[in-house]
Design a protein around this nucleic acid. Structure first.
Lengths: 149, 149
DNA sequence: GACTGATAGTCAGCGGTGCTGACGATCCGC
DNA sequence: GCGGATCGTCAGCACCGCTGACTATCAGTC
């Protein structure tokens, strides 16, 4: 099934393109991850934890670029699914250290596989040159300076 | 000012990249359009109207890929700024035809110029090859089939 | 001409997301 | 020990887009 192609006035607008590409990926991501009982944000948290072994909630939030208040519910959900554990840091008892459980590690592996499959399908309409170029361009944009002062 | 570069675990995730590129563009867009008293969605409505001269609310919503219920408030706002006018269609009195006012056309010109400037700045960190490639890739993704049934 | 079903616009209400502001607990420099 | 900063938490708000219901209107049928 193809969706309607965007009207010509909009197809050259970066805002339209980025928004709809993002929305479409979000849909695909939800569909791919649903069988694993987590969503894209939760998977990102698991991946960050796996890469760093153990971080405080605030550090995880910082990595992901989301607010610490948003992090609370996110960790609540993951803890409810027994994929992560909160522990008060003995060094700094203000901090909640968040750690993957064995179940969390397993879930991460499976869901990561599903995500990679999904991304591969998502990028399938592109030539491999265009696909690499897209990723490289996005990386530059996200890591790059802006006029934001 | 450069923003923090994304952590390595996330910089290869399409979801993270698309989301943050989109968020960053949204910020820049808001900043660029603020002096013109409209936001990105409103500008898109004006552009669609300009390209088609006159459309019903539902048709505009269809072009932009947003819901007809969302369209109501959007047209309300634009009408409040006297940039568009609603007229009952004589052919089909269920339809609200939406039309640019002269002020709307003028605003569109100015804001479009600001948007183009903004996009140019936004894409500045990319080589011109990468920039064209990015746009082409996004166009393919947005216009392309998905597994969405 | 009246009845039926579909369509356009409107509105109330909901869910998701992310924010601000406040608070308690805790840490650190003095 | 005190004052200021930091972390987690919560309540409340704003924005966005949706669903569902309602009204007005149209088109087709009898």
């Amino acid at each position: 099934m193809t969706r309607d192609a965007p009207p010509e006035v909009l197809s050259s607008r970066l805002g339209y393109l980025l928004k709809h590409a993002y929305l479409r990926l979000t849909e695909e991501s939800a569909r791919a991850l649903a069988p694993h009982g987590i969503d894209g944000r939760e998977l990102a948290v698991l991946a960050v934890l796996d890469a760093h072994d153990e971080l405080s909630q605030l550090e995880v939030a910082g990595e992901l670029g989301i607010d610490r208040t948003t992090m609370v519910a996110l960790v609540d959900a993951l803890e409810g699914k027994e994929l992560v554990e909160r522990r008060r840091s003995p060094q700094d008892r203000r901090k909640n250290m968040v750690q993957l459980t064995p179940a969390g590690q397993e879930r991460l592996r499976d869901a990561e596989f599903a995500r990679q499959e999904m991304e591969r399908r998502f990028l399938a309409p592109l030539s491999s040159t265009d696909a690499t170029c897209l990723v490289r361009a996005l990386q530059s944009l996200v890591g790059a300076p802006t006029s934001a002062g």
